[in-house]
Amino acid sequence: MKPPKPATSPEMTWPQRFLIAAVLAWFGLLILGPAVALVRRAMEPGIGRFFAKLAEPDAIESLWLTAKITAAVTVCNTIFGIGMAIVLVRQRFWGRRLMDGVLDLPFAVSPVIAGLMLIILYGPRSTIGSRLSDMGLPIVYHLPGMILAGLFVTLPLVVRSVAPILEEVGSDQEEVASTLGADWWTTFRKITLPTIRWGIAYGSALVVARSLGEFGALLVVSGNIIGRTQTATLYVHDQVESFEPHGAYVMSTVLAGLSFGMLIALEAVRNRTHRQEYGAEESQDPSVERKTIRPTRRH
């Protein structure tokens, strides 16, 4: 699957070996070392203590809340992400460029600032916030606020994974289908959906990974009340603050393991997308590969 490499002599010179060694050393010190150190710290008191810590009610509750938020965020942003990608690529209307720009804004906004925005809009002192909480629907410091924070932070991911594929494929097949009398829903189900399904899978996997690990926005929005509004990442923070490093290390290891799993899943999906979209041949156009493979990095 790799593009042809420039001819390099099989025998490496010493400067080349030195460069490889330097890169490996840097990678080991910066990425691998810390990851291994974390797992070792979590396992230090023994595997029994590890699971005992994880089985504590606070830890279980926090994982459950994280699961709920992740599920809600993934469902909403996947459905609307597909919709927004279709609107963005297939429709021409006034304000489309603006929509394109606004879509990427969450990438430029610090998570803490995202939380601050929600507090300003829905906080107890704002008009909307106090109105909604009078109606029995408090947003900030409660689950809806945390879901909104997750939605904000992960909004671009599915759109940016699906839109390039839609653009690449073009609308010819969809045109044919509608000329043959298929209504838009049939066209979507039979033509569009099969083409973009791996893009959707890739985008939603990114959403899952990102919302599992979201911290800054949630910290600002949640008020951090134990048991009720504590997610797994907030639990880690809480354990650090209360000088319980072992609990923090244990939960961090679980989160790191989950995200590592997502990384492997993403790798698999990425290979599938590539194979499906471009067949067995190698893609000649580098931008094609970059668009499908690294959708999050398009700004």
Binding site: L24, I31, A37, G213, E214, L266
Partner: peptide, 25 residues
């Protein structure tokens, strides 16, 4: 292995990153 793990910082929650660094350094 290195090629696959380059993306690890994007996948790992940022607060976990903090703890990893504290664990090593």
């Amino acid at each position: 292995f290195v090629n696959a793990l380059v993306d690890l910082p994007f996948a790992v929650p940022t607060i976990v990153t903090g703890l990893m660094l504290v664990a090593l350094f």
